[in-house]
Amino acid sequence: MARLLIVPLVAGLVVAAAACDRAPAGGADGRPGAVTITETYAAEPVTDESAVVYLTIRNGTQVTDTLVGAATPIAAVAGLHRQMTMGAMTHMESAGSVPVPAGGDLRLEPGGLHLMLERLSRRPQAGDTIDVTLTFRRAGPIRVRVPVIAYADVSDRAHPPQ
């Protein structure tokens, strides 16, 4: 019976691989020669425990950089989580540090790599902005302001209509 589901899901993987090639060549604000952050947003949490943040990191330099940490005033813990595919299943693990390839993008997006804010000191609401500081091995700390949107608006933000 499981075969019924696995077949369409594997087909989805092929679609996903093709879709990854569609990433734009340059970030909206991507300056050459710098690491820049675009497409920031967070989902308004529906529980008190945690909030999730998405963004795109563009490395405009000639050298691979590494995202080594994150922090925000509204949470005691800000950690990267990512998924690992092993066979037919996907495993998620805490991602301590993540490379950002020279001239490339690192995307944090729903269902993939994301920044998890835990032990919140306050629960952000749609319309708020959250200060987040990302720390890179070479570029150092970069502070961004992350707008908070409702979960109902996440799909259109992550997958805008073509």
């Binding site: 989805g12 993987l13 879709a19 998924q83 299943m89 495993h91 998620m92 693990e93 997006e109 997958h159």
Partner: peptide, 19 residues
């Protein structure tokens, strides 16, 4: 290490804009 097992459909979600 914390791990999560998710259906393969999640991989689709990682970058497919419109399934």
């Amino acid at each position: 290490m914390r791990r999560i097992v998710i259906g393969l459909a999640l991989v689709t979600a990682a970058c497919a804009p419109r399934p």
